[in-house]
Design a protein around this nucleic acid. Structure first.
Lengths: 205, 205
DNA sequence: CAAGCATAGTCATCGATGTTGAATTTCTCG
DNA sequence: CGAGAAATTCAACATCGATGACTATGCTTG
C-alpha cells in the first residue's frame, strides 16, 4: 500500500510458484534424526536446515513426534524382509532372515534410520509403535504366517524381540562381545535361535 | 542487621542441624524416575518433592544424568541374579534364570526401577552403561563364568541381549502376544533359549 | 473472472527445562 | 576463635516444543 517500503521482503505470506518445502523439511528431518537421534534433533534445527520457520514444521506435522513419524515410518527395505519367506525353504529361513536383518543394520542408508527408530523407541510414541509393528503386523507376523507356522503371533513376537535385543546390544549399546563380531560370525550365532523361534519346538522337554 | 525484617526466613544459607537432604533428594528421584521415566522426570519436580531448590540437586549430583546414575545404579535384587549359578545344576540354569528374571520385572519394587533403566537406556548415558554392565561384567558374565562356560563373554552378551529383548517387548513396549502371557508360560518359552545361550552348542549344524 | 476457502509462511510469545554463578549461612577443624 | 568447606537459595540464561495471530498465495466454484 504505502510506497515507503523498499525491496525489503514482506515477512508473512505464501511464496509464489510451486512449493516443495514439505519435502525439504522431511529430508532434513530424516537426516537429523538418523544422525543425531530423536532427543538431540530439534525442530528449530530441522527448520533451519530446510530454510524455513520452525512454526511451519509444526504446521505441517503437528508435533515433534508427528515429524518423526512422517520421516521414518515407512522403510521399504525393512518391510521387504517379508519377501524372504517366499524365496527359499522354511527350514533355512533362520539363517536367511538373520543375515538380511544384520545387513540392513549395517547398510549405510537403512542402518542409521533403524538406529534412530530403536533409539527413539522409548522417547517417541510413534517410534515405539514402529518397533511394535515390526514385531507383529508389519514384518514378523506376515513372515511367520507365510511359512505356515503354528502360533504365528507368538513366534513372530518372540523372533522380533530376539532380533531387537541383538540389534540393541550390537548396534545401539555397542556391547563389546557382540559388537566386535564380524557380521558373518554374528549370523552364525543368531540364525539358529531365529530358526528355533520360527519353526522349532517352542517348549522342548 | 536492620530491625525492620520480621520473621521472614532469610533465603540463602545452610540449614542448622543435621542434614539428610541428599538422601531425601535421592529418594524423590528414585520415585520419580520409576514412576514417570527419565524424560518426564524433571529436576525441578524432584527438587519440589524433596522440598529443596533445584540448584541444590545439581550441586549434589552434577547433572540430570548424574542424578539418575546415583538413584538407580546399584540394584541389589538384580545383582543377586548371580547367585543363581551356585544354587543348582548348570543344566537347568536356563529355567531358573528366566523365572527369576521375569519375577524381578514383575516385582512391585524392582520392576519399576528396571523399567526406568531400560526406558532411559537410549536417552541417558548412565542408563545405557547400566544395561551394558548387566549384559557383561555385572551379572551375565559372572553367571556364565560361574558355570564354567566356554566363550563366557559371548554367551553372557547373547543371553543378556535376549533377556533385554524379551523384557523390552513384554514390559516396555507391551507387544501383545508376549505381554498377554502369564509369567509361567513366558518362562516356558524363554527358558530353553536362555539355556541354549548359556550351555548349548552356539553354532549347531 | 471474481469470491472465498484452503494452503503456505512468518512472527512474537508462552511456559518449561537443564544448567550456571553469585551470595549467604552453617558446620568443621586447626 | 578463625578459615575454609559444605549446604542452601535466588536470579538468570539459553533452548526447547508449542500456540495464536497474522499475511500472502493458490485453487475451486459460481
Amino acid at each position: 500500500m504505502t510506497m515507503l517500503e523498499g525491496v525489503t521482503t514482506r515477512p508473512g505470506g505464501r511464496r509464489p510458484g510451486a512449493t516443495r518445502t514439505r519435502v525439504d523439511i522431511l529430508a532434513a528431518a530424516q537426516r537429523s534424526f538418523a544422525e543425531h537421534g530423536y532427543v538431540l534433533t530439534t525442530i528449530r534445527g530441522v527448520a533451519r536446515a530446510a530454510g524455513v520457520d520452525p512454526a511451519l514444521v509444526l504446521q505441517f506435522f503437528g508435533s515433534k513426534d508427528g515429524l518423526f513419524d512422517a520421516a521414518l515410518r515407512d522403510d521399504p527395505p525393512v518391510r521387504a524382509l517379508v519377501t524372504l519367506a517366499g524365496e527359499g525353504d522354511p527350514s533355512d529361513l533362520g539363517p536367511r532372515l538373520a543375515a538380511r536383518y544384520l545387513e540392513l543394520w549395517e547398510d549405510p542408508h537403512t542402518g542409521p534410520r533403524m538406529l534412530a527408530v530403536v533409539r527413539a523407541a522409548t522417547a517417541a510414541p510413534s517410534a515405539s509403535a514402529m518397533v511394535t509393528a515390526f514385531m507383529t503386523d508389519e514384518v514378523m507376523l506376515p513372515l511367520a504366517r507365510a511359512i505356515g507356522a503354528d502360533q504365528a503371533e507368538l513366534r513372530a513376537a518372540l523372533t522380533g524381540a530376539y532380533l531387537f535385543g541383538v540389534a540393541s546390544a550390537r548396534y545401539v549399546l555397542g556391547v563389546a562381545p557382540l559388537a566386535a563380531l564380524d557380521r558373518e560370525a554374528a549370523v552364525t550365532y543368531v540364525a539358529p535361535v531365529v530358526q528355533h523361534h520360527l519353526t522349532g519346538d517352542l517348549t522342548p522337554p
